[in-house]
Each structure stands twice: as structure tokens, then as C-alpha cells.
Write a protein that binds this DNA or RNA. Structure first.
Lengths: 197, 197
DNA sequence: ACATGATGTCTAGCATTGCTATGATGCTGC
DNA sequence: GCAGCATCATAGCAATGCTAGACATCATGT
């Protein structure tokens, strides 16, 4: 009951991850609308019901992909922030990293922040990696700023707007760095140019 | 061939609008995933193929709803801007109007700015109302600002981020006005409080 | 006035989707 | 070696977007 079922459990965990990875790759290659349970099952070389023995449904697979993404995003933002020499540049570095993440892996980003989800944000049951990612934004603002959480929230929202509108073709893909510079400059309170309307 | 076919054409146009309105109401009441061609057909009291004699498919209906929304949004933003006494307050008024629009009609907003679309943005074939809505943001910045289009773009993106994350439950619905005040204050170059990170 | 042709509409059906009940197969533990 | 259980696939369900074909209705020309 020990060695054998250990192996089985290991295989099962591997297959669990295989499904997540396959869904993610398929979405990244052809978009989420191409991720059907049949295609996904064929890709992992099992039949459909196997998917349902691992996940409660397609939504659960999507959620698993998203949570995987939260961890990667948090790590990436943290690296960017720690690599920045000075606090003022940290915000810029983190924001640029965020946009790069969204651009390089659009399907993953969609699963995390665009598609309907029941993952709890800003809540007690929030996945730790997600909270960690948000905290990277918070850490970009001085600890004595009583509204740093609000600043982080607005910064993140603005970045999401840029990423989402760009990805869906609603603003031109070019000019992302100009938008980034302007946003960070204004958020950091350094009006660059004649800003006052 | 004149009077009769005139009447027919009029009836056809009415039905065209009826379909758009029905789709919009149904989406607003139960979300876009509840808008199926069967339910929509039943609601307008015709059979499914009638829908396809007016639109090239479900996507085309969605696009028609979105374009209707662009017109309403443009009118609303314009009213807000013109009602503002001074230029500095115009930006705030327009931004607040935008968020109100998104909050009051979430499904319409989704069709316009979230769901996949092939409507051309910032392009030669951009629907005039859409361009008009964007221009309302541009008009909130001084004409001598050489980057006012960029300012408008970033402002709009940030608002969209706030609207989208709020609607999908990714940031708490409360606190929208604080976010709005902070965003507008920073964009307008008036750091409100200890802003510098 | 009546057949004719076109116009408009519906019934019925197809392929695909997410999901599940049922049955076959093979492994575990005695 | 055999009972029992876990594992997996086949086959099927209801619902979806979309379409072909039959059917009816109505304006028009003789």
C-alpha cells in the first residue's frame, strides 16, 4: 500500500501538472477559445473523463493555470524591484516587468486578469502568490505614505488597462514604453512636460 | 414597388434595432454568456434564421451593440465635459462619467471594451462615435500640450483598468471615488499628498 | 381573376461544445 | 487464484452557433 500507491500518487500529480501545462501551451498557441476538453484530452493522450477526475471542470483548469501565473508574476516583479538601484527606479522597473509579462504571455495574462474567475482578490482566501505580486507594487512606495496601498491599486489598474487594451487591439501595440514612462512619471508625482490640463 | 417596399424596409429596420436592444437587455440582465441565438430569437419572437438575415452571426450582433454604446458614451462624456466650469475640473468630470457608464451598464461596457472584437480602434475605419469619445479625453488637456493624445490614451487606459478589474471582482467595488481622485490628481500633475515613492 | 415568381419565414438538422453514466480492463490484497 | 476495487475509455446527453431546405405569403403581369 505504500510504495505502489506512492508511485501512483506521483504519477497522478505529474499528470495533473501535465494537464495544466498542456492547457497553457494550447492557449498560448491558439487562444483560449481553442482550448476544448477534447483537444486538451487528446494532447495529454488521455480521454476526456480523466480531466474531470483532476479538475471540477474547464473553469477549474483555467483557474489552476492562472494561479500558476500568479506565482511567476510575483517572482518576476520581485526580481525587477530588487534589481533596481534606487526606490524611484523600482516603480518603473516593476511596471515595465508587468507589461512585459502581459505581452510575452497574453493567454496566461488573460486567464489571470481578464477571463471570468472566482479566484478571490483582496480577500482572506486570496492565493498567497497573488497577494505577493500586489505587495511588490506596494513596496515601490515609501512606507510613510499612508495611502501606498491605494497608490499600488491604481498603478496596477492603470497597467492592466494598458495591457488589456493593447492585447485586444484597442490601442496600438507601438508606444507602450511612452505610455509606461508617462504613467510612472505622473504616479510618482513628477510631471514630465506640461501636464496640467 | 415604392410604398410597400418602403414599409417593409421600415419594418426591417425596426426589427434590426429590436434585435440589438433585446441582445443588450438580455446581456445586461443575465450576462453575455446567457445571450444565445435561441434565447435571443425567442425574445424578439422570431426564429433563429431571422437573426442571420440581419447579422452575419452572433459576433456581428455584439458589434452592433458595442457601436451603439460608443455613441452613448461619447454623448455622456461630452455633456460632462461641457458642464464642468473650468478646464481642470473637466478631466475629473469626464473620468467620473466614464466610470459611471461602465458601472451602470457593465454588459454594454464589456461588449465595447472587453470582449474580443474586430472593431478598428485608432484606425481609418474607426467608428466616428468611438473617435468622438476618445476626443473628449483629448479635449481635457491643454491644446498646447504636444502630448495630449498620449495623456488621453493613458488616462483612458487607466480608467479602463479600474473599470475592468472592478467589474470582474478583482478589486473591491468600494473605493472607486478614491481611485478616481488619486488618478486624476496624478495625471493632472497635482500630487495630492506624499506621492513620491 | 388567377397563375407566377419572388420574398420572407420556419422547421429540422449538422457539427461542436462541456460534461457524465455506464461498462470494460487491469491491478491490489487476501 | 480470486474477489474487489480503482482506473480508464466508449458512448451519450443537452445546449451551442449556424444553415439548408420546405413552406407560406404576397405583389405583379396577363
Amino acid at each position: 500500500m505504500s510504495a505502489i500507491s506512492n508511485r501512483r500518487e506521483r504519477e497522478r500529480a505529474q499528470r495533473h501538472q501535465l494537464i495544466i501545462t498542456a492547457a497553457r501551451e494550447l492557449a498560448e498557441a491558439e487562444g483560449w477559445e481553442a482550448v476544448t476538453t477534447r483537444r486538451l484530452a487528446e494532447r495529454v493522450e488521455y480521454s476526456q473523463p480523466v480531466l474531470y477526475s483532476h479538475f471540477n471542470g474547464k473553469d477549474a483548469i483555467l483557474r489552476a493555470v492562472a494561479i500558476e501565473g500568479f506565482g511567476e508574476l510575483a517572482a518576476r516583479l520581485r526580481r525587477a524591484r530588487l534589481a533596481a538601484p534606487e526606490p524611484p527606479q523600482a516603480l518603473h522597473a516593476v511596471c515595465r516587468s508587468y507589461l512585459e509579462f502581459a505581452t510575452e504571455q497574453p493567454a496566461l495574462y488573460q486567464a489571470m486578469f481578464v477571463l471570468p474567475t472566482d479566484v478571490k482578490f483582496a480577500h482572506a482566501e486570496t492565493p498567497p502568490p497573488l497577494r505577493a505580486a500586489f505587495d511588490e507594487f506596494v513596496s515601490c512606495f515609501r512606507a510613510d505614505n499612508p495611502r501606498r496601498e491605494l497608490f499600488a491599486e491604481v498603478t496596477w489598474s492603470a497597467l492592466h488597462g494598458i495591457a488589456a487594451l493593447s492585447e485586444s487591439g484597442r490601442i496600438p501595440p507601438n508606444g507602450q514604453s511612452e505610455r509606461l514612462d508617462l504613467l510612472v512619471g505622473q504616479i510618482a508625482g513628477e510631471p514630465s512636460g506640461p501636464a496640467t490640463p
